[in-house]
Amino acid sequence: MNDPSSLAAPAADCLIRNDWICGTYLRTRAGDLASAVAEHVELTAASVLLGLVLAFPLALLARRVRVLQTPVLGVATVLYTIPSLAMFSLLLPVFGLSASGIVAAMALYSLTVLVRNILAGLDGVPEEVREAARGLGYGPARLLLSVELPLALPAVMAGLRIATVSTVSLVTVGGIIDHGGLGNLIYDGMSSDFKAEVLTASVLCVIIAVGADLLLLTVQRLLAPWRKAVAR
């Protein structure tokens, strides 16, 4: 790689030969790659945050009104079963060929994982702990915020990690309408049979997924230092 004449023919050859790994591609398209990574991260963050914001009230509602728990979990299972390409195609009439459609579809998946894990986490809080808190004069809101949610945190974070990693890989499908972050490059490389572009974008996807997972694991350890992280 320390070839001083990087513009000479041998260096460009890997583009002509259509190699899987190509330094020239990395150098000449660094800007494209960076903006695709940025878009990928933005789409993922928007989807997961939207899912999280919607999941909390839904989970709390399903917990308070027990009758709603079965339908909420049932709808979540149905949504989770729908394949991504179909999910976002079904939203096409609402959102058109926009990035919002991708975010909405991905948020629905995150939502289903998060609702289930928040409910499971809150259900896992021992009844004695609740009793003790009530005995100390905790109202429902304070009980939830300072006792139940911290204890449910490992389950919630496990759900958040699953939702985030899944979203990073699913966003690529958005490449079909040019709003898929690195998926755009994969789609483009597929159409033009450009191997280095497809492989580079795919590897970057996996790196983002693993990086996001490690980041969330760190956040979990910082938020709940008294508890060893759930291994998933």
Binding site: I186, K195, S202
Partner: peptide
């Protein structure tokens, strides 16, 4: 299985 994009693997195998 979760972290590797299905779409990417499909395209990689096809090309």
């Amino acid at each position: 299985g979760r972290a590797v994009p299905t779409f990417a693997v499909l395209v990689l195998l096809f090309i």
